[in-house]
């Protein structure tokens, strides 16, 4: 019997389970390396060369170069690891989250100030919604 994984159809949501951790292991460990200032410098100086040091798929590397966070989530990256890249880019967590919703930072902030996204309207204002 296969394991029951009942969380695959929640709109706009990828659960970072064992399958995703397996798929994204090296992508996340790359992000983790950005905790060290000397690695941030080397990455920013030549992103493609730094990414080539990690045994990632080409699709993962391209998504990192494009800062395509939603694709990265599908390819096994986890948002807490991605946040190391947000900070390397001088972005806040809130900016990173806004980018994943397809909203501007201002629109996202306004949504939060008005009480956040409601459960009845999971993708309101989102780029995919």
């Amino acid at each position: 019997m296969a394991l029951d994984k009942p969380y695959g159809d929640i709109p706009g949501t990828i659960v970072f389970d064992s399958d995703m951790a397996r798929r994204g292991f090296h992508a996340n460990q790359f992000c983790m390396s950005l905790m060290r200032p000397e690695n941030r410098e080397r990455f920013l100086a030549d992103e493609a060369a730094y990414l080539d040091e990690w045994p990632m798929t080409e699709a993962q590397k391209q998504a990192f170069l494009r800062r395509d966070y939603n694709t990265l989530l599908q390819l096994g990256a986890n948002v807490y690891y991605l946040s190391k890249l947000f900070f390397t880019d001088g972005q806040s967590f809130e900016q990173g989250a806004a980018a994943m919703t397809g909203m501007t930072r201002e629109a996202y902030r306004a949504m939060m100030l008005s009480g956040g996204r409601s459960t009845g309207d999971h993708l309101s204002g989102g780029g995919d919604g």
Partner: peptide
């Protein structure tokens, strides 16, 4: 408490929950 930090559904809040 309620929050989602990732993906297109980021920003979710559920006061009732």
């Amino acid at each position: 408490m309620s929050h989602q930090l990732q993906g297109p559904r980021a920003g979710l809040i559920n006061r009732d929950f």
